[in-house]
């Protein structure tokens, strides 16, 4: 059950009579209002092209849209603009330049203009570096409220996954999240439609 259906049902059930329909309408309206794509504030058009392409390499379109379709780039631009520290932003933007440098060295063009195979090769290089780094790192406790220090690709990968799975596409189409399940079964059979 998707959220809108669930809310509709909640509105009908007598025990939920405390819910006013105005309140529902206001909340659903707010959701629609937020859908308008915002202009980019930090990423230049060239940097944005790299982010769009790389987010699609990390989470490609399959039977559901990928990073590009979920507009992960807009989320990343917001994070860079309003959330990241200056240092984190510098690491990220330098990483985009590094992606272009690596692609140019190997394939003679920038990352965004490279073929999907070439892009995958470059991302594979970054991912190998990340895997090696993680193997070296001793797991130490970082408080929930602190943001760990990350290298560029770790930032890019974390933000892509977060931006994708928390988007409407990620939540409703990919993960089929139910906002109001209505019941709890601790040992339900995993159906053909996997839900989390």
């Amino acid at each position: 059950m998707q959220r809108r259906d669930a809310l509709r049902l909640l509105g009908k059930a007598s025990v939920f009579s405390v819910l006013s329909t105005d309140w529902l309408a206001a909340k659903l309206g707010a959701e629609v209002a937020q859908k308008a794509p915002g202009a980019l504030q930090t990423l230049t058009p060239a940097q944005n092209d790299i982010v769009v392409a790389m987010s699609e390499v990390i989470i490609p379109a399959t039977d559901t849209p990928g990073g590009k379709g979920a507009r992960v780039n807009e989320f990343i631009d917001l994070i860079l603009t309003e959330w990241a520290t200056d240092d984190e932003k510098a690491v990220f933007l330098e990483g985009l330049a590094e992606a272009d440098r690596r692609t140019n060295e190997l394939f003679g063009r920038g990352f965004a203009a490279a073929s999907p195979k070439e892009q995958a090769a470059i991302v594979q290089g970054f991912d190998d570096d990340l895997a090696a780094l993680r193997n070296e790192k001793i797991r130490e406790w970082i408080p929930l409220w602190e943001v760990p220090k990350m290298a560029f690709f770790e930032q890019m990968r974390t933000l892509t996954l977060t931006g994708y799975y928390t988007s409407t596409i990620g939540q409703e189409q990919e993960l089929k999240v139910e906002i109001i399940p209505g019941t709890f079964n601790g040992c339900a059979l995993e159906g053909p439609e996997v839900k989390q």
Partner: peptide, 24 residues
Amino acid sequence: VPEQDYVEHVPVSDMKFRGLADRK
């Protein structure tokens, strides 16, 4: 006022920072 102030059914996709909150 519960009808105005409670926020439990707002999906993460509706949140500006997608659950990461306004860090600054």
